[in-house]
Computed example of a mutant assay.
Amino acid sequence: MAQLGEIDFVERWFRERLAKIDPQATDIRIDSVERLSRGVSRETWSAAGTVCTAGVWTPRQFIVRRDHASGSVIPTPLQTEYDVYRLLRDSEIPTSTALWFEDDAEWCPDARPAYVRSHVSGDWRLPFIGNTDEAYDDVRIAASKEHLDKLALVHTADWKGLGFGDIFAVPASPADCAENLIRANLAQLAQFQFEPSPALAEGVARLLQVAPKDCPHITLCKGTNGHGEEVWSDGRIVAMSDWELAALGDPAYDFAQIQEMIPEIERHGRRLWGLPEALAYYHARTGIEVTVERIDYYRDLYGLLQFLYTHHAAAQVRRQQRPPLRFVWNAAEIGFHSEVRLAATFGSAPGKVRSSQ
Rank of each mutant, 00 (worst) to 15 (best):
A199Q: 12
P127D: 08
A201R: 03
A343Y: 06
E339Q: 14
E230V: 13
D250P: 00
R125M: 11
V292T: 14
R267V: 11
L279Y: 12
Q193K: 11
I30M: 01
P350S: 06
I28Y: 00
I295G: 03
F336Y: 13
G228K: 12
F14T: 06
P109Y: 02
V238H: 02
H147P: 04
R326Y: 05
H311L: 13
V231P: 05
T58N: 01
F14A: 07
T44S: 02
R354Q: 08
A331Y: 11
W45S: 07
D254Q: 08
F327E: 01
A175S: 03
P113T: 03
L208F: 02
V210I: 15
R60T: 00
G165L: 09
G223C: 11
A135F: 12
L304A: 01
Y82I: 11
A201D: 12
F194G: 15
R267K: 11
T44Y: 07
Y281V: 08
A315T: 03
I74M: 11
I265L: 01
E34M: 06
E333C: 14
S72P: 08
Y82R: 10
L305Q: 13
I21A: 03
A142Q: 15
D242M: 08
W100F: 14
D103T: 02
D123N: 15
S121E: 14
S32K: 15
T310P: 10
R66N: 13
G39L: 05
Q24F: 11
H217G: 02
P251C: 03
Y309F: 01
T219K: 01
P216K: 05
W159H: 10
L200W: 06
I295N: 15
R65M: 09
V231Y: 05
W232P: 09
R322K: 06
A47L: 08
P171F: 04
S173N: 04
A252E: 09
R267D: 13
A315N: 00
T291A: 13
E179Q: 15
H312G: 04
G269W: 04
P174G: 10
I262P: 04
S118Q: 01
E277I: 03
I237Y: 01
S355F: 15
V317S: 04
L36R: 08
I295D: 08
W107R: 10
W45D: 01
P263S: 05
I334N: 15
S348M: 15
D254M: 05
I21R: 09
K352N: 12
E179W: 09
L275E: 14
S121G: 14
S348L: 15
Y302D: 13
L4Q: 12
G226F: 12
N330M: 13
L181A: 12
G303V: 10
W232R: 10
V290P: 12
E277H: 03
F9R: 06
T224G: 14
E146C: 05
R112E: 07
G351K: 02
A313N: 06
